[in-house]
């Protein structure tokens, strides 16, 4: 996904003189040609994410669309007030790409984890949040959002799905129709969801845009009133959207996601998924108990 992201950004910066790239000294090397070719507007300016996001807003006010790239918690949390006041409040355009996802940097500890990014950014009305699961999905979503006049958060992961979905910005994809339950897969959980549920009589929906949330597709595809939500985020991140999609209906929701706790363990991404219960076997168990 990083490679595709780099290509997308390179293309955009190269073809648009009213664009700028701001790197926070993370993943800068692959952009070295861009930094050399466009030194006035493609810069690795070091680690000062809060000030950097305000700086990006100043560019945006002046008609230069900024693309900011950094590690998830340092963009989402350190610069949260800047995203809120400088971009959302001022209705400015900008692209915020992060690496690290929930706990891709599994050995770096809690400081570098951010399973709360979606929950946190959902508090900012009008901010677009896309969570591609594959490089192709990143490219599709980038092409839809990177120059659309709004602020967009692109959540990258290094642990992509093998299953690519022909996704569309702002729309959930219906991967399978069934009777007993609606299973919602988000971002990099899709492979596990598919493996756990493909032979069951269930509907499977895949979300690669979580804001704006596609209420309609869920509303039209949840006859059973039973929902199993699988996401790589803190549990609760999308429950409000699900309830809103199905308001005035009796529903049962079960959720497979990151428990809302301080993660003090390290290990591999896979070990962390097991700890959180984001596994094929657990998804199967949760589904069985639900239906």
């Amino acid at each position: 996904m990083r490679r595709i992201m780099q290509e997308c950004v390179r293309r955009y910066i190269s073809n648009n003189k009213n664009s700028a790239l701001l790197l926070a000294d993370i993943g800068a090397w692959p952009f070295h040609d861009l930094l050399e070719k466009y030194p006035s507007r493609a810069k690795n300016i070091g680690i000062f994410e809060a000030g950097m996001v305000s700086l990006a807003a100043g560019l945006s006010i002046s008609g230069i669309v900024p693309t900011v790239y950094g590690i998830t918690p340092f963009i989402v949390q350190r610069a949260l007030e800047q995203l809120k006041l400088d971009f959302v409040y001022q209705k400015l355009e900008g692209n915020f790409i992060t690496t690290g996802a929930s706990y891709d940097f599994s050995t770096l500890g809690y400081s570098h984890y951010c399973p709360e990014d979606v929950l946190t950014l959902k508090t900012l009305p009008e901010l677009e949040i896309v969570t591609p699961g594959t490089p192709q999905e990143f490219e599709t979503l980038w092409n839809s959002c990177h120059n659309n006049g709004r602020a967009t958060y692109f959540r990258m992961t290094d642990y992509c799905n093998s299953m690519n979905v022909n996704c569309e910005f702002g729309k959930a994809s219906i991967l399978k129709k069934g009777e007993n339950c609606t299973v919602i897969a988000v971002a990099e959980t899709l492979d596990k969801v598919w493996n756990a549920c493909k032979n069951e009589d269930v509907t499977i929906l895949y979300y690669s845009t979580v804001s704006p949330f596609d209420y309609g597709t869920l509303s039209d595809n949840c006859e059973s009133g039973k929902i199993l939500l699988c996401s790589p985020f803190y549990v609760g991140s999308l429950v409000a959207d699900i309830v809103k999609s199905l308001e005035s209906r009796r529903i049962i929701i079960r959720e497979c996601g990151v428990p809302n706790e301080v993660l003090r363990n390290y290990g591999t991404k896979d070990e962390k998924d097991k700890y959180c219960g984001i596994t094929v076997s657990n998804i199967k168990e949760m589904l069985e108990s639900l239906i």
Binding site: G58, L59, I61, S62, Y89
Partner: peptide
């Protein structure tokens, strides 16, 4: 009015971004 305000510590960094934009352009 070029920028919104309220929370301190935002305007000057935005002003720096605006000065940078003038250089770019």
């Amino acid at each position: 009015v070029e920028t919104s305000a309220g929370s301190l510590g935002h305007g000057f960094p935005m002003a720096v971004g605006m000065a940078w934009a003038k250089k770019i352009k």
